[in-house]
Simulated assay, not measured.
Amino acid sequence: MSEADYFDEDWQNSYFGPNYPRLAQIKKAYDPEGLFYVHNGVGSEGWSDNGFTRRPG
Rank of each mutant, 00 (worst) to 15 (best):
residue 16 F to V: 11
residue 30 Y to R: 03
residue 21 P to R: 03
residue 45 E to L: 09
residue 23 L to Y: 08
residue 53 T to G: 05
residue 32 P to H: 01
residue 5 D to I: 01
residue 26 I to L: 15
residue 20 Y to T: 06
residue 8 D to E: 15
residue 47 W to Q: 04
residue 34 G to S: 01
residue 27 K to D: 10
residue 53 T to L: 14
residue 14 S to I: 03
residue 49 D to E: 15
residue 37 Y to D: 09
residue 17 G to D: 09
residue 17 G to W: 11
residue 45 E to K: 06
residue 5 D to L: 01
residue 36 F to A: 07
residue 25 Q to I: 04
residue 33 E to C: 05
residue 42 V to E: 04
residue 31 D to H: 01
residue 7 F to A: 11
residue 57 G to W: 03
residue 12 Q to K: 14
residue 34 G to M: 08
residue 23 L to W: 09
residue 26 I to A: 03
residue 43 G to D: 00
residue 49 D to M: 11
residue 52 F to P: 00
residue 2 S to L: 13
residue 28 K to M: 12
residue 19 N to G: 05
residue 37 Y to M: 08
residue 6 Y to E: 13
residue 44 S to G: 09
residue 56 P to I: 02
residue 24 A to C: 05
residue 27 K to H: 10
residue 55 R to Q: 14
residue 53 T to Q: 14
residue 56 P to N: 12
residue 8 D to R: 00
residue 35 L to Q: 15
residue 13 N to H: 04
residue 22 R to Q: 14
residue 1 M to Q: 08
residue 36 F to W: 09
residue 45 E to N: 13
residue 48 S to H: 11
residue 47 W to H: 03
residue 6 Y to M: 06
residue 30 Y to F: 15
residue 1 M to R: 07
residue 11 W to G: 04
residue 34 G to H: 02
residue 28 K to T: 11
residue 42 V to L: 01
residue 13 N to K: 01
residue 48 S to G: 11
residue 10 D to C: 07
residue 12 Q to G: 04
residue 31 D to R: 02
residue 45 E to Q: 11
residue 54 R to F: 15
residue 42 V to H: 05
residue 48 S to M: 05
residue 47 W to T: 09
residue 32 P to N: 00
residue 3 E to Y: 07
residue 14 S to Q: 13
residue 10 D to A: 11
residue 19 N to R: 10
residue 19 N to D: 15
residue 39 H to Y: 11
residue 31 D to L: 00
residue 8 D to M: 00
residue 13 N to I: 04
residue 51 G to E: 06
residue 44 S to E: 05
residue 37 Y to I: 11
residue 29 A to I: 05
residue 7 F to T: 10
residue 24 A to Q: 12
residue 17 G to M: 01
residue 14 S to L: 07
residue 10 D to Q: 12
residue 32 P to W: 02
residue 36 F to N: 10
residue 33 E to I: 01
residue 37 Y to A: 03
residue 20 Y to G: 01
residue 5 D to R: 08
residue 57 G to K: 05
residue 3 E to H: 10
residue 46 G to H: 14
residue 14 S to F: 05
residue 49 D to K: 06
residue 50 N to R: 04
residue 43 G to A: 02
residue 7 F to E: 13
residue 11 W to C: 02
residue 10 D to P: 05
residue 3 E to N: 09
residue 4 A to K: 07
residue 12 Q to I: 07
residue 11 W to L: 00
residue 30 Y to P: 14
residue 31 D to I: 12
residue 38 V to L: 10
residue 17 G to K: 11
residue 19 N to Q: 14
residue 53 T to C: 07
residue 30 Y to S: 08
residue 21 P to M: 01
residue 47 W to R: 02
residue 16 F to T: 09
residue 50 N to I: 04
residue 51 G to D: 05
residue 46 G to S: 13
residue 42 V to Y: 08
residue 7 F to N: 13
residue 6 Y to K: 11
residue 33 E to H: 09
residue 51 G to K: 00
residue 53 T to R: 12
residue 25 Q to Y: 09
residue 31 D to E: 03
residue 48 S to E: 08
residue 29 A to S: 12
residue 39 H to G: 08
residue 12 Q to A: 04
residue 29 A to K: 10
residue 46 G to Q: 12
residue 19 N to H: 10
residue 19 N to S: 10
residue 47 W to A: 02
residue 6 Y to D: 13
residue 13 N to V: 10
residue 23 L to K: 06
residue 21 P to C: 00
residue 13 N to T: 14
residue 52 F to G: 06
residue 16 F to Y: 15
residue 56 P to Q: 06
